[in-house]
Design a binder for these strands. Structure first.
Lengths: 207, 207
DNA sequence: ACCTGAACACCGTTCAAGT
DNA sequence: ACCTGAACACCGTTCAAGT
């Protein structure tokens, strides 16, 4: 049932996942789902745990910086396999025990690296959602946009927003097109992650 | 109508805002709303613009770092006045023209400070949602939690998650209580923001 | 005791009927 | 032409009736 829910969300998007449709897919009556799950919230929790369960454990014998970096990039790979997961995680109020366990080992990596409890606390806040491998892409333009529509939009908005236009055209790999194929999200994610880790290292050395 | 929608979301939460209830509150028939707005998406866009409109313009005559910092903190004050706004902004696919204009001036601050187009691009990705004054608080425990429930939870989970427990108890201002009143979100926000800005400054000097 | 169909209390939006 | 009530196509979940 959890696997069916994850598969459906992967394929058709989280907004297509309703209790009724999931039941239909499984060939059962809607109310049958409530034998396995108290409500939809619990279903979503279970789905999150499937994704978090795919994250590799920390590599042994590495320094804190490398261990944190590799684990976060592993989390990112899991998140990219399940594009709905970041949105669901954001919307939840309470972490599942499995997410808490993930956080706990991540905190442990910092503390083992010599970070004080307080510094680790601040550092975890600074990483924010990136700890789970996603960066709050505000207005995710990465979804399938018609290049012509994008070009028309930029032609219209360009004169009003010259700075946005400058970045949008610079991000394009082909000089010819008005608006490029979007940003290299993986590069941007690692750029930000490394900037953060370097900042943490500096704070650690100062302390 | 927009003001009524914003007021309702401020007061009772975004999940309580439905087209039908908003219409009832305004003393009109549900379909009357569709004279002002094509659909609910457009209503939410309008509500976002109300919030973004409350952000102060950039201060003149300051260096890029100070100008960016002050503007982001102004955005944060606006966001804190409207707790639903961050969630709605996250869920939207496309920015409104007003949000685009905000981004444009923010990009302009970096470029005026000497950042190249490409570096500005990376820097904007690194800031992420913080540019609009909110940090993806994963699992926002800041909401009204019963201290007793939290204490019980920690008592149960503490042994399994010692590192989470260490931070939770350290964050407490009173040593006596098992779990504190949560984190100082404003402090954490500024800590992260300043770490980012310092990192950007270092990149600028290196370039 | 277990299962399940119908029902409840909602949604956002369409559309045809009324003025 | 404008307005609007009813209807449509959904939700998640409750609950009583059936086995």
């Amino acid at each position: 049932m959890l696997r069916a829910a994850v598969a459906r969300a992967d394929k058709a998007g989280i907004e297509s996942l309703s209790m009724r449709r999931l039941a239909e897919e499984l060939g059962v009556v809607p109310m049958a789902l409530y034998k396995h799950v108290a409500n939809k919230e619990e279903l979503l929790d279970g789905m999150i745990d499937v994704v978090v369960g795919e994250i590799d454990p920390p590599v042994a014998g590495a320094g804190w910086k490398s261990a944190v970096r590799q684990r976060i990039l592993s989390a990112r790979r899991a998140l990219l396999r399940h594009p709905w997961a970041s949105q669901v995680m954001e919307s939840k109020q309470n972490p599942t025990p499995l997410v808490l366990a993930y956080m706990d080992t991540m905190i442990g990596l910092f503390r083992a690296g010599g970070f004080s409890v307080n510094l680790t606390h601040h550092v975890m806040h600074t990483i924010g959602s990136r700890v789970l491998g996603f960066s709050q892409e505000l207005f995710n333009d990465s979804s399938t946009i018609d290049p012509e529509v994008a070009a028309a939009m930029m032609r219209e908005l360009g004169p009003k927003f010259p700075n946005v236009l400058a970045i949008a055209t610079a991000a394009s790999h082909e000089e010819a097109s008005v608006v490029g194929p979007g940003c290299d999200d993986q590069y941007e994610f690692e750029f930000a992650l490394d900037l953060l880790l370097d900042g943490f290292e500096r704070l650690l050395q100062r302390a």
